[in-house]
Amino acid sequence: MSTTTLRSRRISNGIIYTILSVMSVIWLIPIVWLVIRSFQKEKGAWITTVLPQGYTFDNYIRLFTETDQFNYPLWFVNTLVVAIFTCIFATMLVLMISYTFSRLRFKSRKMFMNIGLILNMFPGFMTMIAVYHILKAIGLYQSHISLVLVYSSGASLSYFIAKGFFDTIPKAMDEAATIDGATRNQIFWRITLPLTKPIVIYTALTSFLAPWMDFIFASVIMKDNYNKYTLAVGLFRMLERENIYEYFTRFCAGAVIVSIPITILFIFFQKYYVEGVTGGSTKG
């Protein structure tokens, strides 16, 4: 390689490093700002200076000690429980549906698939109140089970990503097993499932995250039942007219605490996340 191309490469890399640095700063500013505000000493959501005038760790401590008005630890546990069950249930549902559509051939399969795809397109808020009344009619009034059901059914409508993944697994393996006398049930558990680890992790990850992010469904379902709130609903309450001055910094602290485990999950599983989104096509 000649020195001129080396030099031009160095220059172009230098430019790229500069752009990347500038971009990461821009991307991290809001996050850093959130962290800074979570340590802010003075109260209030709006401060007259760009940075706070004093810092304290109190916001974090009070989040866990002053629980009579905003019971952060309880909400955290609620959300965690809902998230774990949603994760298990949604993953099972998605696997069942996508395996069926990808592997099994039966009457009106295409019709079912298209219907699923269409249903997924309806804006969920519209049906929120009807869903609430149905849950109430079947005796799941203000229950965490209803949250799990709603989140899982939401997740399962995006079955087609997982289906695309199943499609990439050669069918020949199934056929060989059928010849050996395995039932479809056995094939599903012993052969197909182990090969679909990425999509399992993807589904589990996205469905685990949903309960942490949703603030509308949870509030419609839980309504006045403060002890069953999830974190997002509870944190939102801190921003109401009467509370924002007193609680904004604690809101920031609470948000930072939620973000830490999610960040760790994401960093660990980003590979699977991508394979999931692209339906396995990234395996090349």
Partner: peptide, 8 residues
């Protein structure tokens, strides 16, 4: 909003 008033 109220945050501006209480802050400033």
């Amino acid at each position: 909003d109220d945050a501006v008033l209480t802050g400033g």
